[in-house]
Amino acid sequence: MIKTLHKYASPMHFHAVARAWSAPLLWLAAALFLAGLVGGLVLAPADYQQGESFRIIYVHVPSAWLSMFAYLVMAGAGATSLIWRVKLMDAIARAAAPLGASFTALALATGSLWGKPMWGTWWVWDARLTSELLLLLLYLGYMALQSAIDDRRAAARAGAVLAVVGVVNIPIIHYSVEWWSTLHQPATITRLGAPAMATSMLIPLLLMALAFQLLFFALLFIRVRSELLEFEQRASWVREILRQARSR
C-alpha cells in the first residue's frame, strides 16, 4: 500500500493528475452551481421568519464550511510533511492557504450581509462571525510567515508547525468565543443560525455545498500545480513541461 501511496505522492504524478482533473471538476462545479442557484433563488420558498434574506444561506454556509475545511487540509498536509517529509504536502498546504483565506473572507462578508437586516448593523460580536474573523487572522498569519521566509522549503516547514498549532487552537478559540458571546449577547439578537429547512430549501443547499467543494478542489489543483513547478523546478519532468510550454 505504501508503495502505491508513494507513487501518487510523487510531485510529477500528482501534477499530471491535477492537470487532468481540474477542468472536469470546474465544469461539474459550474453545472451544480447552476442547479443550486435555480433551486435556491427561484424554487425554494421564502423563509416565513427571515423572508427572502435567508437565501444568502446558500453562499454563506458553503463558504463557512470551506473556510474550516481548507484549514484542515493545511494542517493535515503540514503534519504529514513534518512527519514523513513528503514534498507534495508542502505544496498542498501552501496552495490551500490563500483559498481558505478567501473563503473565510467570503463567509464573513456574506454573514454580515445576512445579519444586517436582523441586527441593523454590519457587525455584531456573534460567536460564529467572531470565530470566522479569528480564523481569518490565523490564515493571514500563516501567509505572512510564508512570505517572510525566503527559502520555500523552510517556509513550508515553519508554516506546517503553525498550521498544526492553529488547528489545535481552533476548537479552543471557538468554544471560548461561544462562552464569551453568551455572556454579553442580549437574548433579543437571534443567533446567526440556519432556520428550520423544508426539503425544497435543503436540496439547493446540498447542491451549492457540493459545487463549492468541487470548485475548491479544482482551485486547489490549479494552485498546487504552480507550487509543484516552483518546488521541483530543477526536476527533469518540470524541464520537460517547460520545453513543451515553450514549443507551444
Binding site: 479569528l134 498549532v165 479552543i172
Partner: peptide, 10 residues
C-alpha cells in the same frame, strides 16, 4: 504578534 495574538484570545 500576528501569529500568536489569535492564540492568546481564549
Amino acid at each position: 504578534a500576528l501569529l500568536i495574538l489569535p492564540l492568546y484570545i481564549p
